[in-house]
C-alpha cells in the first residue's frame, strides 16, 4: 500500500499541496483526478523522492522513501527520461544494467506490441511513440507498484487506444497502479478508485463501482458535484 499522509508543499510562495492524504492499494487502479495545477504530478514526484516536502509522510508498504524502493515502484512521467541521443535499445540496456527487477522478455514483447523500432533514436520519437516508450520502460520493471503521470494526455487517438489496452491486461494485474489525469473520459471503466484533488487537498476519495451501486453516479457525475457544486 502506498500511503500519503498529510503532505504539505510550497512552491514559489504558493501552497501546491495543502495536507494531502490518501492511499493506493496493491491490485487496484487508483486515479488522481484534478485540473492542471492541482498538484497531481507533484504528488507522484514526492512519492518517488524527486522533490522534497515541507511536511507530511509518504510510506510504501510501511517503509519510507529511499533507494531500495526504486526496485519496488516504477514511475512513468509524462515526458521522456532517456537521453535523446540514445537509441531505444541503448535506453533499454541502461535499464537492464541498473535494475535487478528488469524483465527483458516483457520489454521485447512490448517493443513488438507498441510497434517500436529498437534502432530508432529516442529524440526522433513522436509524442505518441514517446509515451509508449516511457510506458515500456515502466512496465518492463517487475515492480509491485507503478505510477503514471497523465498517460493519455496530448497523444493521438490511436496511441491512446493502444495504451488503454495495456490496462486490461496482465501487465497491470496484481500491481498497484496510481495514475493521474485531468480528463476521465477514456478511463471511466478502467479505474477502481478515484481521488479528487482540488486546491492542494483531497476533496473526495471513493470506490467507483461502489459509487455506481449505491448512488448510481458515474465518476464524471461526482466530479461535476465536487468541482462545480
Amino acid at each position: 500500500m502506498i500511503e500519503v499522509i498529510d503532505v504539505h508543499k510550497r512552491f514559489r510562495g504558493r501552497k501546491v499541496l495543502n495536507g494531502v492524504s490518501f492511499t493506493a492499494e496493491k491490485g487496484q487502479i487508483t486515479c488522481l483526478i484534478g485540473i492542471n495545477g492541482a498538484g497531481k504530478s507533484t504528488i507522484l514526484k514526492a512519492i518517488m523522492g524527486l522533490t522534497p516536502l515541507k511536511s507530511g509522510m509518504i510510506r510504501i508498504d510501511d517503509a519510507p522513501v529511499g533507494p531500495a524502493m526504486y526496485e519496488k515502484v516504477a514511475f512513468v512521467p509524462d515526458h521522456l527520461t532517456t537521453p535523446t541521443g540514445m537509441r531505444l535499445s541503448e535506453g533499454i540496456q541502461f535499464m537492464k544494467d541498473f535494475y535487478r527487477n528488469w524483465n527483458d522478455v516483457r520489454a521485447n514483447e512490448l517493443l513488438a506490441f507498441f510497434k517500436l523500432d529498437r534502432t530508432e533514436r529516442v529524440g526522433n520519437l513522436s509524442k505518441g511513440m514517446a509515451a509508449k516508450y516511457s510506458l515500456l520502460l515502466g512496465l518492463s520493471q517487475d515492480t509491485d507498484y507503478i505510477l503514471m503521470d497523465e498517460p493519455f494526455s496530448g497523444i493521438d487517438m490511436f496511441s491512446r487506444e493502444i495504451i488503454a489496452e495495456v490496462f486490461s491486461t496482465d501487465l497491470i494485474e496484481d500491481r498497484g497502479v496510481l495514475l493521474t489525469t485531468h480528463e476521465i473520459d477514456d478511463m471511466e471503466h478502467l479505474i477502481d478508485q478515484a481521488v479528487l484533488l482540488q486546491n492542494g487537498s483531497v476533496q473526495l476519495a471513493f470506490d467507483c463501482e461502489e459509487m455506481r451501486t449505491t448512488e448510481g453516479k458515474s465518476v464524471i457525475d461526482v466530479m461535476r458535484e465536487v468541482y462545480t457544486g
Binding site: 487502479i29 486490461s168 471503466h189 478502467l190
Partner: peptide, 17 residues
C-alpha cells in the same frame, strides 16, 4: 477473466468481480 478484460477493455478486477 484475463481474456475477457482484454476483449471488453475493462480492468481485470472488474472482470473478476
Amino acid at each position: 477473466r484475463r481474456e475477457l478484460g482484454a476483449l471488453l477493455k475493462i480492468n481485470p478486477n472488474t472482470a473478476q468481480k
